[in-house]
């Protein structure tokens, strides 16, 4: 693909050119979003090989079906939806992963995880190097169940709206909200073990 001179050009213009069959314009869209899509795929599949497949399949499908993109949502939201579908399909196919049930019913709120109640220091992330912090954050996310993980990744990392997340995952808005709350509280709990203020313990405020 040719090196793009389209960097910085408004997205809808680039999408329009890509739809006309301009491969350089499509290449520019790939370059804008490949990093985020790869990260999303890694978070959802938790497997690098699957994530690479998802990345390729996402942009292949986007290229193939570009005429179906109507421009009523952002291009990014549209490809995120493709990527999430591909990634969830990978999870379903990986039969050895018995924890994957995408239509499980989840108890919403009676048993929220709140064992660690300890304040954090200011800027807790400053205590860690970038790599260490990345490791802590990734490990915490990996420990979430797939549907909690997907909701959290879309809402709080990729910053999709509740409605966009619901659409991408085929869930209702209340289901997205309850899973998001659970995911946030579980992550908070896990990160508290790393970030709590020295000298505080779980019962300091009880």
């Amino acid at each position: 693909m040719a090196v793009s001179s389209l960097a910085g050009i408004d997205e809808s213009a680039v999408v329009a050119q890509a739809r006309e069959g301009d491969t350089t314009a499509f290449g520019e869209l790939v370059r804008r979003y490949e990093g985020k899509i790869f990260r999303l795929a890694q978070h959802v599949t938790q497997n690098r090989e699957d994530a690479e497949d998802v990345l390729q399949e996402t942009f292949m499908k986007a290229y193939e079906h570009l005429d179906q993109f109507k421009g009523d949502s952002k291009f990014y939201t549209w490809i995120v939806r493709i990527a999430v579908n591909q990634a969830l399909m990978k999870l379903r196919r990986r039969k050895t992963d018995k924890s994957v049930s995408l239509d499980e019913t989840i108890d919403t709120g009676e048993d929220m995880v709140l064992r660690e109640i300890a304040a954090w220091g200011e800027d807790p992330e400053q205590q860690f190097s970038r790599e260490e912090l990345g490791g802590v954050l990734d490990t915490a996310i990996q420990s979430l169940e797939p549907l909690y993980r997907s909701v959290f990744v879309l809402r709080d990392i990729e910053e999709l709206s509740t409605e966009e997340t619901a659409e991408a995952l085929g869930l209702s808005v209340p289901a997205v909200k309850s899973r998001l709350l659970r995911a946030r509280l579980q992550l908070r709990e896990k990160l508290t073990r790393f970030f709590k203020r020295k000298g505080d313990d779980a019962f300091a405020y009880m």
Binding site: A119, D156, L191, F195
Partner: peptide, 11 residues
Amino acid sequence: DTTRKTIQIYK
């Protein structure tokens, strides 16, 4: 407070 910080760190 810690949930807010959790979200901020991931963002």
